[in-house]
């Protein structure tokens, strides 16, 4: 019993330390950078629910993230930056889109599902890009009010970092409980033996819908905060290339591990930020690293870490 408690408390403590240390020591640039890693990592982790548990490879995940970002930004522009309002607006919008996607993918699988989610995501992008009056078109939305919660302003990099960290922790706990709950097991079952699941009385369509809602809600929460890092949101946050980037991050980190998503987004963004300072060829680096991981570490960095820990 005590061991079990310890083994659960230890990662928690490590995570809190990982949040506390930078909060105390890092400068504004790095805090923002870490906050971005955490927010994107949270979205990637929600994608892991679909890909890792359900085998549902979506190329439309950025649409959920980006739609939430736009909804949150629009809400903030019109009603002010209240944190709960912003989170509610963004998450709600993402849930709506997720419900739509969940219904759409009920009968699709494999490449069909990939293309269907891509198409739906790109429709969202077209709307974001062309609906100038609301989304600002190609320019996106600037001049957002800073986040606030009652009397507190949450606009410094430290506050944003802690906010992102809190969200990531909460989202991780949610995702873990989802995977461990009957619905998470059913999602795995529907991936492994969809016919048998129907014969057992499970509706694979409803399983997928719920998985999509859970993933969409989490991605939406992360997306809601994303615009406030730079007080800007643009159509790139909805585009399928961000969906593809999320998949790259997920694979680098390790499909199916949940926490690997954060690792993957950290590695990717670090490459993007630091390698691009030295050479224009940073995408080449990302590509090579990605291919090497696919070739050598099919379970990503998280899988390698787990194997190493087991010895």
């Amino acid at each position: 019993m005590r061991r079990a408690l310890l083994s659960r408390a230890a990662p928690m403590a490590a995570a809190l330390l990982a949040l506390a240390l930078p909060a105390a020591l890092a400068g504004p640039f790095h805090l923002r950078f870490l906050a971005e890693i955490l927010l994107l990592g949270t979205a990637v982790m929600s994608l892991d629910l679909l890909v890792g548990s359900g085998g549902l490879v979506s190329l439309g995940h950025a649409a959920l993230f980006g739609t939430a970002a736009y909804a949150a930004a629009v809400a903030a522009l019109h009603l002010g930056g209240n944190l709960l309002l912003v989170l509610g607006a963004g998450t709600g919008a993402a849930l709506l889109l997720a419900a739509l996607m969940g219904v759409a993918i009920m009968r699709s699988s494999h490449l069909f599902l990939l293309i269907l989610t891509l198409l739906l995501g790109q429709i969202a992008w077209e709307v974001a890009f062309h609906w100038r009056a609301v989304t600002g078109g190609a320019d996106g939305l600037r001049g957002l009010p800073p986040l606030s919660l009652g009397p507190w302003r949450l606009d410094g990099p430290r506050a944003l970092f802690l906010l992102a960290g809190g969200l990531a922790l909460a989202a991780h706990a949610l995702a873990r409980s989802f995977v461990a709950a009957p619905i998470g097991r059913a999602l795995v079952g529907a991936r492994e033996q969809p016919l048998r699941m129907s014969a057992l009385g499970y509706s694979t369509a409803r399983i997928r819908l719920r998985a999509m809602l859970a993933a969409g809600g989490i991605a939406g929460a992360a997306g809601s905060l994303y615009p406030f890092l730079n007080l800007y949101v643009g159509p790139q946050s909805v585009h399928w290339s961000l969906s593809a980037t999320m998949i790259i991050m997920l694979v680098i980190g390790g499909v199916g591990s949940l926490w690997g998503a954060f690792l993957g987004s950290a590695v990717y963004l670090a490459l993007q930020t630091y390698v691009s300072a030295y050479t224009d060829r940073w995408q080449l680096f990302v590509g090579v690293i990605f291919v090497l991981i696919v070739l050598l570490l099919p379970h990503g960095l998280a899988g390698a870490a787990a194997r190493w820990r087991r010895g």
Partner: peptide
């Protein structure tokens, strides 16, 4: 779980 009606519970 499905028989007990809990198959999709979170």
């Amino acid at each position: 779980r499905q028989r007990a009606g809990h198959g999709l519970r979170w």
